[in-house]
């Protein structure tokens, strides 16, 4: 009987080789991976994640930050947080990782067509939203106003800084960046991301908003959106909880009645408004 891993077994990781590593900020890296089996890397929908397996260390859920139109390579942006992600940060081009996925729900881009789209990305939250932004830009004529808001801790921690510069120069979209504090040599905005919401110039009745970042930042952002008259069902957030199977079996990622690996990570706010802020969840 063969014990060779089967491609159809979702618990068995595929082997990928790192072909590029970009040092984004002091603790964050973007890796481009290609499968060693020579097949398509990964067809995914923006907002989905993979389980990345670092041999000898463990497995972590990481969002896909690359272009959905380029499925021949897989792009992930990883912040060194704990044991697995710190070890991940030491990997270099040529190293191997295991990948399972893609898993989870996606940003509802098709449902947003014909209306405004507002992206609110705090810190590393820009990573899973970058895939959505690539898709929005590729299909620009399907949407009305597109606005991207990004908040970071300080100028040095701004993720994808060069791309943000390009988006700011793109007259077809609005893009604003703010940092929580800065030195006097910074010429951009300083202040929390929520204050950009009122300036983004969208139609609250026709906007679909995608919010991703630390949970407190998302909570404040949702409040700011509601203050502008955006209904809960027009607000979509990406929630994070610890994950193991990513298949809806183990319950590690339970968030109230939802399993975030399967029902999430992207959820519309009307589904979770009663759960947000409950410390036990």
């Amino acid at each position: 009987m063969s014990i060779a891993p089967s491609r159809s077994d979702p618990m068995v990781p595929r082997r990928f080789r790192i072909v590029e590593k970009i040092h984004e900020t002091a603790d964050t890296y973007t890796f481009t991976l290609v499968p060693v089996d020579g097949e398509t890397a990964c067809r995914f929908a923006p907002g989905q994640f993979n389980m990345l397996y670092l041999f000898g260390y463990g497995e972590v859920p990481i969002s896909i930050s690359g272009d959905p139109a380029a499925p021949e390579r897989l792009v992930h942006t990883v912040r060194a947080m704990g044991s697995v992600t710190h070890a991940f940060a030491t990997l270099e081009a040529g190293d191997m990782v295991g990948v399972r996925g893609p898993f989870g729900s996606a940003w509802p881009l098709a449902a947003a067509e014909g209306g405004d789209v507002l992206i609110v990305a705090g810190g590393l939250g820009l990573a899973p939203l970058r895939s959505a932004i690539y898709r929005l830009l590729a299909e620009r004529d399907r949407y009305r106003r597109i606005a991207i808001l990004h908040g970071a801790r300080s100028p040095e921690t701004i993720l994808f800084a060069e791309e943000l510069r390009q988006w700011r120069r793109n007259l077809d979209i609005a893009c604003e960046v703010t940092v929580d504090y800065a030195g006097t040599d910074w010429h951009g905005r300083v202040g929390v991301i929520t204050q950009l919401v009122a300036l983004a110039g969208f139609d609250p009745q026709r906007v679909t908003t995608f919010v991703c970042g630390p949970e407190i930042m998302m909570r404040f952002s949702v409040e700011a959106l509601k203050k502008q008259g955006v209904a809960d069902e027009r607000i979509h957030v990406s929630m994070e909880r610890s994950m193991k199977c990513a298949l809806g079996h183990c319950g590690h990622c339970q968030f109230g009645p939802a399993f975030l690996c399967k029902d999430g990570p992207v959820l519309s706010y009307d589904r979770i408004r009663n759960l947000v802020g409950i410390a036990e969840l």
């Binding site: 810190g123 908040g151 929580d180 407190i216």
Partner: peptide
């Protein structure tokens, strides 16, 4: 300091 060390965002 929501984006600071210890924050996943």
């Amino acid at each position: 300091d929501v984006y600071g060390p210890g924050s996943a965002g």
